[in-house]
């Protein structure tokens, strides 16, 4: 196999979102291609990582993002940076055309960033809060 052909395969893998590919060329020859994670991150994967605790930034905080689209309202008026919050507490709501989504915190902790305003338009994956874990 020529270098150019392998390069083309890499491009096709990247374009189609494959991380690795094994090819059998005849009975004995096998070729295995793997894409470097630094070059390729599937957007969906990225999003999931944001929702979970993001190891690469810090283990002490989580980001709360919206997976719905609509208008944001705070659950209580005077929510401020530094406020103590409990696991399961509703911080706000996203109101779409046919739904009302509650934004809950998945840990006990302290709010370290409020990235949204009352009445702000929230789109898919939008950062809403950062919470320092207790």
């Amino acid at each position: 196999m020529e270098v150019k052909q392998i390069q083309k395969l890499y491009e096709a893998m990247e374009a189609n979102g494959y991380e690795s590919l094994e090819l059998e060329l005849g009975k004995k020859n096998k070729i295995k291609l793997k894409l470097d994670q630094a070059n390729f991150l599937e957007p969906e994967t990225l999003y999931e990582e944001f929702e979970e605790e993001d190891d690469s930034i810090s283990k002490t905080q989580i980001e709360i993002r919206s997976d719905k689209v609509g208008t944001f309202s705070f659950a209580r008026e005077n929510l401020e940076i530094g406020d103590q919050i409990k696991k399961g507490e509703v911080l706000g709501t996203v109101k779409g055309i046919s739904f009302l989504d509650k934004i809950k915190c998945s840990v006990d902790g302290r709010i370290s960033n409020i990235a949204i305003q009352q009445g702000g338009v929230v789109d898919y994956g939008r950062l809403l809060f950062v919470v320092e874990i207790d």
């Binding site: 957007p43 609509g70 779409g96 046919s98 338009v121 898919y124």
Partner: peptide
């Protein structure tokens, strides 16, 4: 996400943006 059924064919999300 990229998948059309979750984005460009997602009627509730599109209408929610139009409304907001």
């Amino acid at each position: 996400p990229a998948r059309p059924d979750l984005s460009y064919l997602n009627i509730p999300n599109i209408l929610s943006v139009a409304h907001a």
